[in-house]
Design a protein around this nucleic acid. Structure first.
Length: 816
RNA sequence: GCCCGAGUGGCGUAAUUACGGCAACCGCGAUCGCCUCAAAAGCGAUUGCCCGAAAGGGCGUGCGGGUUCGAGUCCCGCCUCGGGCACCA
C-alpha cells in the first residue's frame, strides 16, 4: 500500500472479516492462567442505527477491553440488545409493521455498525431481551420474586401517561412529565404490580461504600433513596379515641405543634367527615385535589389549600388539643400521610398557618435570647438553638439533646419512638403495552393470583395481535385465545395477566446471562462466580438512577436467594458525557443529526473513535460542532507516514532523545488509559509521532531506535485505533495480529529526564531558566541562580534576604 | 430552597492530580510563507492581552479578599453556568 497515503476504506473491511474469522476477541472459559476481566458496556436499545453517544461509550469501553487484553487478561467483552420497549410499538403503529420486525431490523443495522467500528466484542455470546430464550428467564426470576413476596399487586394512586396510555414508575416521571414522550403525567387509582425495592432501601444505601463510582452518581442515588431519620409520634383523635401516627424529623419541636394535617386521601379524613355537615365540602375539596396535575402539586409558589375536619388531636407531650385539617401539601405516599404542623419551624406549615389564621408558637431559638412571640415571627426563623416553651425540656440544645431525649420519653410511654423514612417508593413494574415481557401469572376466580409453573415458561407473547394502539389496557387482553387458560392450580377457567413488564426488568440481570447463555437456567452459578462482578461498566449517565439502581436491587435479591455470591454487580463505573450539536441534543427533527456511520463512511472507524475520544475528558459533554474529524484524519495520515519513514529511510546516528521519548510516552499513555484519560493519551501519542517524524527527517536515530519508537507508537495506539495499527504492524514486518501482542513495558531509567529545566525567580517572578541534572544538589542550584546575569540584572541593588530552593525545579530569591 | 460539579487563549482542552512551584501540552481555527501553471494534499512560521522596531517589560486562569517566598491549585465571601433533588414533614 502507498506509504504516503493510508486508505481506511480499503483496509478496515479486510480486518473486520479477518478478526471475526480468527475469533480474536472470544473470552476463554479455561483462562489459561490469565486473570479475568469483565468489561461491560451498557447494551443499546435498538431504535435505529447507533448514535453519537453510542460511539463515545463503545469506543471508550473498547479501549479498556483491548488494553486489558494486551495486558494479559482474559477479557469478557459481550454485547446484546435491550430490545423490548415502547418505541418499537410506536413505530409499529405508525408503519403497520410488527414490533418484532422493526426491532430486528434495527439490531441488524447496529450489529453491522459495531463490526465496522471494530469493537472487540465476543460475538459468540450475544443476547437480546425480546428473544423467548431470554425473557423466559426474566419470567422465571419474576416468579422467584413473587414467591418471596417481593413482587406483589396492590391498588394505589399511580403515575399515568395519557399519551402512552400506560402507568410509569416514579423513576420514569421527570418533573411531572413522561420520560419517554414528555406528556403531562396524571395520577390514577389502579391495581398494579410492584417490586418491593423499599425492603432493600437501607442496603442499597449501605453497600454504596463498596462502589468505585463517581460521586455524582452516588449522590444521585443517595438523594433518590432519600433516607431521613426522626421519630414516629402517636396522636389520639379526641373525638373518636383512635390513634393516628405521624413521622417527623424534628421531634424536638413537638411543643410547637399548633395543628395537625392529614393528606386529603388519608382514610381517616374520610372517616372524620363522614355523615357530618362538612362532608360535601370535603368531597369537593378531594375532587379538586385529585384533578391537580403533578406539575401543579410540585409548584412551591402555589397557595396551600386545606379544610378543617371538625376534630382534634391530642398532643402526646402536653395533652393539648389541636385542630385536625386536611391539606394538599401533605402527601399520602410519604411517611404516614399525616403530620404535626409546627409553623414556627417549618416554612410550609407557616405558610398554611398564616393563610388560615392558625396560631404560631416558637419552641426553639438561640440560647440567651428573649422568648419570641409567634405572632411577630420574623420571616427567617432559626431552627437551631435551645428549647423554650417546652415543659420540662426548656434549655436543652435542640438537635444534640432534645431530639434523643423526647424520642426516648415517647418510646417509654409507648407513644412512638425512633423512626427512619425513605423517599424511595416500590418499583411499579407492570405496563399496559404489548412489546414487553409477559407477566407469568394467571388470575383464577377460585385460587387468586397463581404463578405459571416453571416448566410452562416462557409465556410467549400472543402473535395474533395487529392493533397496538394504546387504549388504556394491554393489547394482550384482546387475544381471547391467549387470555383464557385453565388455572394451573385447580384446573378451572382462568385468565392470564395481560400486562407486560417494564423493560428495566429485562436489563436488571442481562449482565449475568452473558457469562454463559445457559439453555436450562437463567445463569450458571459457576460461570457467574467466575466472571462477576463486572470489573468495569461503561455507559450513559442517564441511567444513574433507573437502571443502575434496579440492577443493584436485583443483584441483592439474587444474593439473598443464594444465586450469586456478591452484593454489588458493578465494581467500577464509567459514565460518558452526552454528545450534542451546537449546544442542543442531536435529533432528526432538529436537522442536526450526525451518525457514527456517516463519519465511518467518510473517514473510517479509527478516525471516528479517535475524534470522539480526543474531544475532551470522557465524562464531560462533547459538542460535535467543536471537534474535527478532518484534523484527526490528518494525524492518522501522519502516523502512517512516520512509521513507514521510520523503517524506510536510511538510518542516522544514536538519538537518546528519541529513545527517552518513546519510553516516557509508554509510561504516560499506560497511566492515562488505565485512568480513562483517553484525550491526554492521544495527545501524548501525537507528541511521539511528531518526535519520530522529526527525528527521521533530521537524520537522527539508528534503525533499531527508530523501529522501537515506531513499534511502541503502534502498540500504544492499538486499543484506540485498531485498524491502522493492525496494518502498520504488518508494515513493521510482524506476521500476527497487533491485538494479540503484549502491552509494552518501559525502562524507568529512560523515563526520567536527563536534564530538567530549573526556573530562577526573583520575588516569585521568573527571570531565567537553566538546564540542570535532575539530582543537582541544592547548593549548586543556589549558586547558579546567584550567578545568573539575568537574575542579577533583575535584582539590581536589592538585597537577597531569603533563598527558597526546590530542587531541581526552582530557585526563588526573595528581596527585602 | 437544599445537594453536587464546573468557570483557563478565537474554540476543544492541558498543567507529571489525594501533595501549591515555568500557565496554556496536544489539537482545531486563523494569518503568512514554501511547493504548484493552479488547486488540493503536504511542509514551515506566527497565534493569551498590552507597550515596544527589537532586546525586553507589564498584565493574565469568573469577581473581591486572605494565607504563603510563591496560588489555576489552599481558606473566606460573592457571581455565573451546568446537573440532581424538591410541599419528603
Amino acid at each position: 500500500m502507498d506509504p504516503e497515503r493510508y486508505d481506511p476504506q480499503q483496509v478496515e473491511p479486510k480486518w473486520v472479516a479477518a478478526w471475526e474469522e480468527l475469533a480474536l476477541y472470544r473470552a476463554d472459559e479455561s483462562d489459561g492462567g490469565r486473570p479475568r476481566f469483565y468489561a461491560l458496556d451498557m447494551f443499546p436499545y435498538p431504535s435505529g442505527d447507533l448514535h453519537m453517544g453510542h460511539l463515545e461509550a463503545f469506543s471508550g469501553g473498547d479501549v479498556i477491553a483491548r488494553l486489558k487484553r494486551m495486558q494479559g487478561h482474559n477479557v469478557l467483552h459481550p454485547i446484546g440488545w435491550d430490545a423490548f420497549g415502547l418505541p418499537a410499538e410506536n413505530a409499529a403503529i405508525k408503519r403497520g409493521a410488527h414490533p418484532n420486525m422493526w426491532t430486528h431490523q434495527n439490531i441488524d443495522t447496529q450489529r453491522a455498525t459495531f463490526h465496522r467500528l471494530g469493537v472487540s466484542f465476543d460475538w459468540s455470546r450475544t443476547l437480546n431481551t425480546c428473544d423467548p430464550d431470554y425473557y423466559r428467564w426474566t419470567q422465571w426470576l419474576f416468579l422467584r420474586f413473587f414467591e418471596r413476596g417481593l413482587a406483589y399487586r396492590k391498588a394505589s394512586p399511580v403515575n399515568w401517561c395519557p399519551n402512552d396510555q400506560t402507568v410509569l414508575a416514579n423513576e420514569q416521571v421527570i418533573n411531572g412529565h413522561c420520560e419517554r414522550c414528555d406528556a403531562l403525567v396524571e395520577k390514577r387509582d389502579l391495581t398494579q404490580w410492584f417490586f418491593k425495592i423499599t425492603d432493600y432501601a437501607q442496603r442499597l444505601l449501605d453497600d454504596m461504600e463498596e462502589l468505585n463510582w463517581s460521586d455524582k452518581v452516588l449522590t444521585m442515588q443517595r438523594n433518590w433513596i432519600g433516607r431521613s431519620t426522626g421519630a414516629d409520634v402517636d396522636f389520639q383523635v379526641a373525638e373518636t379515641g383512635e390513634t393516628v401516627r405521624v413521622f417527623t424529623t424534628r421531634p424536638d419541636t413537638l411543643f410547637g405543634a399548633t395543628f395537625f394535617v392529614l393528606a386529603p386521601e388519608h382514610p381517616l379524613a374520610e372517616r372524620l367527615v363522614a355523615g357530618t355537615e362538612r362532608e360535601p365540602e370535603f368531597r369537593a375539596f378531594l375532587e379538586r385535589v385529585g384533578r391537580e396535575t403533578e406539575i401543579e402539586r410540585l409548584s412551591t409558589e402555589r397557595d396551600k389549600e386545606g379544610l378543617f375536619l371538625g376534630a382534634h388531636a391530642v398532643n402526646p407531650v402536653n395533652g393539648e388539643l389541636i385542630p385536625i385539617w386536611a391539606a394538599d401539601y401533605v402527601l399520602l405516599e410519604y411517611g404516614t400521610g399525616a403530620i404535626m404542623a409546627v409553623p414556627a419551624h417549618d416554612q410550609r406549615d407557616l405558610d398554611f398557618a398564616r393563610k388560615h389564621k392558625l396560631p404560631v408558637r416558637v419552641v426553639v431559638q438561640p440560647a440567651g435570647e428573649e422568648p419570641l412571640d409567634g405572632a411577630t415571627l420574623p420571616e427567617a426563623m432559626s431552627h437551631e438553638g435551645v428549647l423554650v416553651n417546652s415543659d420540662g425540656y426548656d434549655g436543652l440544645p435542640a438537635t444534640e439533646e432534645a431530639i434523643p431525649r423526647i424520642t426516648a420519653d415517647l418510646e417509654a410511654r409507648g407513644l412512638g419512638g425512633p423512626a427512619v423514612n425513605f423517599r424511595l417508593r416500590d418499583w411499579l413494574l407492570s405496563r399496559q403495552r404489548y412489546w414487553g415481557c409477559p407477566i407469568p401469572i394467571v388470575h383464577c376466580p377460585a385460587c387468586g393470583e397463581v404463578p405459571v409453573p416453571d416448566e410452562q415458561l416462557p409465556v410467549l407473547l400472543p402473535e395474533d395481535i395487529t392493533d397496538f394502539t394504546p387504549k388504556g389496557r394491554s393489547p394482550l387482553a384482546t387475544s381471547e385465545a391467549w387470555v383464557n387458560v385453565d388455572c394451573p392450580r385447580c384446573g378451572g377457567p382462568a385468565r392470564r395477566e395481560t400486562d407486560t413488564m417494564d423493560t428495566f426488568v429485562d436489563s436488571s440481570w442481562y449482565f449475568l446471562r452473558y457469562t454463559g447463555l445457559d439453555p436450562d437456567r437463567p445463569m450458571d452459578p459457576e460461570r457467574v462466580a467466575r466472571w462477576m462482578p463486572v470489573h468495569q461498566y461503561t455507559g450513559g449517565i442517564e441511567h444513574a438512577i433507573l437502571h443502575l439502581l434496579y440492577a443493584r436491587f436485583f443483584t441483592k435479591v439474587l444474593f439473598d436467594m443464594g444465586l450469586v455470591g456478591f452484593r454489588e454487580p458493578f465494581t467500577s463505573l464509567l459514565n460518558q458525557g452526552t454528545v450534542v450539536m451546537h449546544g442542543s441534543a442531536m435529533s432528526k427533527s432538529r436537522g442536526n443529526l450526525v451518525e457514527p456511520s456517516a463519519i465511518i463512511d467518510r473517514h473510517g472507524a479509527d478516525v471516528a473513535r479517535l475524534t470522539i475520544l480526543f474531544a475532551g475528558p470522557f465524562e464531560d459533554d462533547v459538542d460535535w460542532a467543536d471537534v474535527s474529524p478532518e484534523g484527526m484524519a490528518r494525524w492518522v495520515q501522519r502516523v502512517w507516514r512516520a512509521v513507514h519513514a521510520a523503517v524506510g529511510e536510511p538510518e542516522g546516528g544514536d538519538d537518546q532523545r528519541l529513545v527517552r521519548l518513546a519510553h516516557r510516552t509508554t509510561a504516560a499513555v499506560t497511566d492515562d488509559l488505565e485512568r480513562f484519560r483517553f484525550n491526554t493519551a492521544i495527545s501524548k501519542l501525537m507528541v511521539l509521532s511528531n518526535g519520530l517524524a522529526d527525528a527521521v527527517r533530521a537524520g537522527r536515530g539508528t534503525a533499531a531506535q527508530r523501529r522501537d519508537a515506531a513499534q511502541r507508537l503502534v502498540l500504544l495506539l492499538a486499543p484506540l485505533a485498531p485498524f491502522v495499527t493492525e496494518e502498520l504492524w504488518r508494515v513493521l514486518g510482524n506476521p500476527s495480529s497487533v491485538h494479540l501482542e503484549a502491552w509494552p513495558g518501559f525502562d524507568p531509567g529512560l523515563v526520567r529526564r536527563e536534564r530538567v529545566t530549573c526556573v530562577l525567580q526573583v520575588d516569585g517572578k521568573v527571570r531565567d531558566r537553566i538546564e540542570v541534572a535532575p539530582d543537582a544538589p541544592e547548593a549548586e542550584l543556589r549558586d547558579a541562580a546567584l550567578a545568573s546575569e539575568r537574575v542579577r540584572a533583575a535584582l539590581g541593588d536589592r538585597q537577597v534576604v531569603r533563598v527558597v530552593v526546590v530542587p531541581p525545579k526552582l530557585v526563588n530569591l526573595v528581596t527585602g
